[in-house]
Write a protein that binds this DNA or RNA. Structure first.
Length: 265
DNA sequence: ATGGTTGGGGTCCAA
């Protein structure tokens, strides 16, 4: 029964943090690594170090300066180009079929500061993007399809996915409208939250800590923005998870840490 | 209530 270990990480510049990506690959040894915010044009993605590290199959969708997603795999992958979300051409989603499983890598818009779509076009974009995700899966895929969805969804849906539910109810990433819309995406393919499958909902879980805290570990005001979901056929295959909190303390680190899930297929 | 930090590209915008 082959293991499939999938890691998702918002790397916040793949070029600046190349050594950290290689460190993660060496330590965690995922079969598939999904990156977000690579912040590099597709043609300038640094392939060589990953080729040499044994990740010989790669799909990259980048752009200049912002966003960008990539999938690195030890096993062959078949790239599937998805829709142009919100018709913005902004490199936020990439799909690969690897060994009979379809893996969706998403970077959902952050949404700006003001949680009102009428005042803040970035928040309107985020809500429209999440709406489109639900529509797309409902129309184009079925819950019985073996799929994994990972990425920086920029939404912490549960009360204990944030350091203070009450204080963040009006903060973009944890507002009721975002949580409701993300719930509709979850329903679209009956997605199972793989990490919460292992960790009860009354336990705090974070994958992101702001750069702006004087001492991120001491204040520990985190949010769980990075997710791994699976469709029902894969639920029984879930074997374990890890959230590499140590990576938030690495030199020149990302503000997100790697989230890993193991499946036995 | 406010401000705090980081990256990319270019001396500001996005997160």
């Amino acid at each position: 029964m082959p293991r499939l270990r999938v890691t998702t990480w918002n790397i916040n510049s793949v070029r600046l943090r190349q050594d950290l990506v290689l460190k993660l690959l060496a330590e965690t040894k995922p079969d598939v690594l999904c990156l977000q915010e690579i912040k590099v044009m597709t043609d300038l993605f640094p392939h060589d170090p990953y080729e040499q590290a044994g990740y010989r199959h790669r799909a990259v969708l980048g752009m200049k300066g912002y966003n960008g997603v990539a999938i690195l795999s030890k096993a062959p992958l078949e790239r599937i180009d998805g829709p142009d979300w919100c018709k913005k051409g902004d490199s936020r989603h990439l799909t690969a079929r690897i060994g009979g499983v379809e893996i969706h890598n998403f970077y959902v818009p952050s949404g700006g500061d003001i949680p009102d779509p009428k005042q803040n076009p970035k928040f309107a974009h985020k809500l429209a993007f999440v709406d489109e995700m639900a529509d797309w899966f409902r129309k184009n895929r079925k819950p019985k399809d073996p799929m994994i969805l990972v990425g920086d969804l920029n939404i912490a849906p549960l009360e204990h996915d944030v350091w203070s539910h009450k204080q963040l109810l009006d903060v973009v990433s944890h507002t009721p409208i975002e949580v409701e819309k993300l719930g509709k995406v979850q329903k679209s393919s009956e997605w199972v939250d793989a990490v919460r499958n292992f960790v009860p909902e009354d336990q705090k879980l974070y994958s992101w800590w702001s750069y702006r805290a004087a001492d991120w570990a001491l204040s520990n005001r985190g949010r769980r923005l990075d997710h791994v979901w699976v469709t029902p056929p894969l639920k029984k295959s879930l074997k374990g998870y890890s959230i590499l909190k140590d990576a938030r303390g690495w030199e020149k680190c990302s503000d997100h840490v790697p989230v890993t899930v193991d499946l036995a297929l």
